[in-house]
Amino acid sequence: MVPRALRFVALGDSLTAGVGDRVGGGWRGWAALLAGGLAGAGVDADFRNLAVSGALTEDVAERQTPEALALGPDIASVVVGVNDTLRCTFDIEDLTLRLDTVCAALAARGTVLLTACLPDPGSMLGLPAPLARPLARRQRAVNAVVHALSERYGAVHLHAADASWVADRSMWSADRLHPGERGHRMIARRFHELLAARGLAHGTAPGCEPDQPLPTRSASLLWLATAGTGWVARRCTDLLPQLLQLAGAEVRHWARGSSARLDRSAEHALSSALAAVSLDVPLARMGE
């Protein structure tokens, strides 16, 4: 009897869609690299990537999850949330409710979940502190939610927000927001290690070394002058007015010595969000 193929479905946004790891005329990415090392000899891996660049948690919940459930995955990655932090409509409670619904639906059918906490976009882009801090606060809250849900559903969780990963520019593509090939390989390899430790990965781990040369400074400048301009314009239309208000609040509280109030407000919103799905998490997790 021929063993059934292992089914791996990837849900999420541009990170999982593979942006930054170009192969031929399209994107490959960490999920495709991981899929190649999941199955052992004599067993295939059936991989479907449902991730879409720009996807929000709402998109994953309403569009990608029903399709994923119909595929009956053995393993499903759910990595999303950064785009939510870049929207003026950001609401940590709404995000928590949607992610909990997604994880619950997949876990209920026995699917093994892959999750990750991620660095905030402000630090990646090197924004001035008054602009970067509100985004960092939002991403820390998202990461805390992902930590709590990962524990609830027994997910294979990858810590991808650590300083060494963020600081190593060779891991990142020219746009400074998405991993380059080396970064995607690192994510795939680390997930493979975590899955192998649980006896869930039986193939060869993805290699560390990239096939393509690392992006040059000129390539980064070219991206900023071409595609980057459009990216900034799209985000500015939606987020910038609110972000400027948030930055103004940061400056005012800093001048008054009351910046801790903003942190407490974010922690209260996080606690309320987790309470909405009957979860609790130490506030220290806001720093992860």
Rank of each mutant, 00 (worst) to 15 (best):
M1S: 14
V2T: 14
R4F: 12
A5Y: 02
V9T: 11
L11Y: 08
G12F: 11
S14Q: 03
L15M: 13
G20N: 02
G25C: 06
G26M: 11
R28L: 01
A32F: 07
L34V: 04
G36L: 07
G36E: 12
A39T: 05
A39Q: 10
D44W: 08
D46T: 03
R48F: 10
A51E: 01
V52P: 06
G54E: 08
T57Q: 03
E58N: 01
R63P: 05
R63Q: 13
P66A: 05
P73S: 09
T85Y: 09
R87W: 01
C88H: 13
T89Y: 12
T89K: 15
F90H: 09
E93F: 05
D94N: 12
L95Y: 15
V102W: 02
A104H: 07
L106A: 08
L114R: 11
L114Y: 12
T115Y: 10
P119D: 00
S123G: 11
L125D: 00
G126R: 00
G126W: 01
P128M: 05
A129R: 14
P130G: 11
P130M: 11
A132L: 03
P134Q: 04
R140I: 00
V142H: 15
V142E: 04
V145M: 10
V145Q: 13
S150M: 08
E151S: 14
A161L: 03
D162H: 10
S164I: 02
W165L: 02
V166A: 07
S173D: 15
R176S: 06
L177A: 04
H178P: 03
G180P: 07
F191N: 05
L194R: 14
H202I: 06
G203P: 12
G203N: 05
G203W: 06
G207S: 14
P210S: 12
P215Q: 03
S218V: 13
A219Q: 14
L221H: 00
L224R: 12
L224G: 04
T226D: 02
T226G: 02
G228P: 03
G228I: 02
G230P: 03
R234Q: 14
T237M: 10
D238G: 09
L239V: 03
L240Q: 04
Q245L: 15
A255H: 11
G257D: 05
G257F: 10
S259R: 14
R261K: 13
R261H: 04
E267G: 14
H268L: 15
V277G: 06
V281R: 15
P282C: 11
M286C: 13
E288L: 12
